[in-house]
Design a binder for these strands. Structure first.
Lengths: 255, 255
DNA sequence: CTTGTGTATTGGTCTGATCATTTAATGATT
DNA sequence: AATCATTAAATGATCAGACCAATACACAAG
């Protein structure tokens, strides 16, 4: 049963690398064709693809196959499917949600530990702060302050959902101040899954977040990256240790 | 056509917020149920779901609907579908590929600019270097050096594909040295799309990358993060300006 | 011009069948 | 007894054709 190591005695397996055989399924082929068309510029955002029935005939596959391909690309944020006359599959500009979804899935499936996740969040945040300090405009700072004000107004327990949404928005606004779309996307992807945990374990009410955030924004406005970073880091450290602790408690209760 | 602002004259639209109606499709409902089961721990990695035919009956939907749900979760890396006896849908630990795919899609669709993308890559790289300097072990450094050696051996034009693969692997190995799964995932997601561009526009052959990488690894081994960062940054700056230039040329040729 | 009413188009779902692949059970061969 | 080829059953992959449901546009009514 033990496969003998091929050590070159037949002369051709030193440099030849075999790739595992993977027969492609029909819907994957359709996906690839569409993605290739986009990559090569034959399709671009806003273009409408043929109707399912028509495309199925063109590609000589069943409608179900086209549907699975469309579904795949819809989930990926590449296509948008709309019903009705003048509906159909339209090419989008792409969507960051799949990234967020994947992070959430990895967290709930155990493919990613909470502590690794949160450390990465801190790392990203550091870079976001640097850029935001450099490029943030007055409008960005005002948006952040408006967000803090709005959050302070929501104090009742019933409003925890809205409060959480505002907290997440705070990080979005901060990321937007970097003027870098990629940083915004990554920061969102890494922030939104927090919402679930916050809802789950509640917030640490022993501590007023608003003050810390106000100081933070003031540092941003001063273009004082080190101080802004320090302020944010102490906040995040507190949040993360609180979350890890609560997660640990929950695990103990289960086990 | 201008909608009159509702200013409370009918008394009930001040505090009531309406959410847009969004009728969920059947397959989405199935997806949600499976994801919820995972989140609540009723399903976990390794578990096998009922066969399509059986689950369709349980949920009182058609097989096609179950299929679209399974397909969605398979693409997301949550499920693995296997044919044959004892096949079926098995829950996985999650997969980072959807993130990479999404970044690629965003790039090719124009939802993300090449320069924003590359800047984010630099930012992430900085953090990766910090952590790798802190936590990298001798085995990590040796793996990096082995990678550099292997890359140097591939010099012919025909081997550019393998060369590119090794370059991408270099960044994976570096990310692995952080001992942080999330950083590895993000770095991979942001590195792999490079492969396409490198294949497309070729490499800058006027410059020996291996030397730079060797110096870089030496700094890592010395735990000298600032110098390692400096070395890597100069490399990336060169690479990125080269890529932007070539991308610009390509755009000019098209337009 | 506005408003309501059809109506054709298109994605969403269902039913039911066949194909292809994989594994396990079976049986023949050594 | 061990090994190998054969067969059978389970399961995903695909196909075919039908109907449902939402949508936008044309058109009639007021």
């Amino acid at each position: 049963m033990i496969q003998e190591q091929q050590t070159g005695h037949n002369g051709v397996d030193e440099n030849i690398r075999f790739k595992p055989v993977k027969t492609k399924r029909a819907f994957e082929e359709v996906c690839d064709q569409i993605r290739l068309a986009i990559l090569e510029g034959r399709l671009e955002a806003g273009d409408k693809l043929p109707a399912e029935r028509q495309l199925a005939e063109s590609l000589d596959v069943s409608r179900a196959t086209v549907r699975e391909a469309f579904r795949t690309l819809e989930i990926a944020g590449v296509l948008s499917l709309r019903k009705g006359v003048n509906g159909g599959a339209v090419v989008m500009q792409g969507d960051a949600r799949p990234i967020t979804q994947t992070i959430s899935d990895l967290l709930s499936l155990g493919g990613l530990s909470l502590s690794d996740y949160m450390e990465a969040r801190v790392c990203l945040q550091r870079e976001v702060i640097k850029l935001a300090c450099e490029r943030g405009e007055e409008a960005d700072f005002q948006a952040l302050e408006a967000n803090i004000d709005a959050t302070e107004k929501l104090t009742t327990v019933a409003q925890i959902e809205d409060r959480t949404a505002l907290t997440i928005e705070f990080y979005h606004l901060l990321a937007a101040a970097t003027k870098n779309q990629a940083m915004s996307i990554l920061m969102s992807a890494v922030t939104e899954p927090l919402g679930y945990y916050i809802k789950q374990i509640g917030v640490d009410r022993s501590w007023n977040v608003a003050e810390s955030r106000q100081r933070f924004v003031a540092h941003l406005r001063d273009r004082n990256a080190p101080e802004a970073e320090k302020e944010m880091m102490s906040h995040m450290e507190r949040l993360h240790s609180y979350m890890l602790q609560r997660a640990q408690e929950a695990a103990n209760n289960r086990g």
